[in-house]
Amino acid sequence: MTPRETDPAGWGAALGAFIATEAGGRRARLENWRRLVGGAIRENWAVTVTIAGGPLDGTHELVLRTDAPSTIAESRPLGHEFALLKAAHGAGVAVPEPFWHGPDASVIGKPFYLMGRLSGVALGNRIVRDGANEALAERLAAELAKIHAITPPRRDLDFLEPPRDGPALDAVARYRAHLDGEPEPHPALEWGLRWLETQAPAAGEIVLAHRDFRTGNYLVDGGRLSGIVDWEFAGWSDPMEDIGWFCARCWRFGAPGREAGGIARRETFYRAYETASGRAIDRETVPYWEAMAHVRWAIIGLQQTGRHRSGNEPSLELALIGRRMAELEHEILGLTGVA
């Protein structure tokens, strides 16, 4: 546990004034700052906000979210993430309550937003260590169905680019464009991408996909879901992309036998999703999206490790991601193999 600080970044006064105005109160005080671990792309601070006057008079346990020193191409700007969080909250998805967005540098020198703080832990290892939790998987499937009930067109989400050649082929093109900028060749990923290109399913239904819906990105308190976080990758896609991502081996945190996120049987998750969404899961198509998941994680991993290699952000955590490529390639070759 990092120590609680009075005002580590010197943001307290400016943020207090900002919150008081937004919340229609007389004043707002911020205390108990604590930097939260996790989130290589964003910086998260837990903070206690006490508002005097107005409809939100009282004490609120919040999270301030802002950009880390450098970000990656796959992730969306903070303001878009805030809009996505609001859309999810509006659809009844269990998410941190979105409060206020500071879109520019005028308050703390960079964009930020404030949201409610969920209880519990998100760390994948901790959640998976607690063993099988079929009820949690069923609840997650039901939440995913609510996310997938958000469909285009949506004026509040008009920044999301519509698919061009379908979510699958669009992804192949994006990942290839990224590989073209890498200093080294990656033939195993090229193998996977060619397979994903030739085997692409026909473009079908388009929904809001979270696109990072996995163990590690939801909080669990006492075995129960408290909410889903990390919306910076969300976009219009095939609903099966999220199903494949959730079940992909790279997100089972050392419990490869529990194929739904390291927490439950795959069929448990599938059936709960089908019941909640009224949409059938094609068992033959999910492995396609699992192969896509591993290619995508590899591309994100190359971006992450590139931040370290660039010298701009030396980090052992980012450096080690570069050496996880073999695990991902192993899965890709297994899912697309000829032997």
Partner: peptide, 22 residues
């Protein structure tokens, strides 16, 4: 088939160095 075997062989060699427990 030769291309796939080659990729698999190179990947296995990397895996033995990076994460043999996998």
């Amino acid at each position: 088939a030769a291309a796939w075997r080659l990729l698999r062989q190179a990947t296995m060699a990397k895996l033995m160095e990076c994460n043999p427990k996998y």
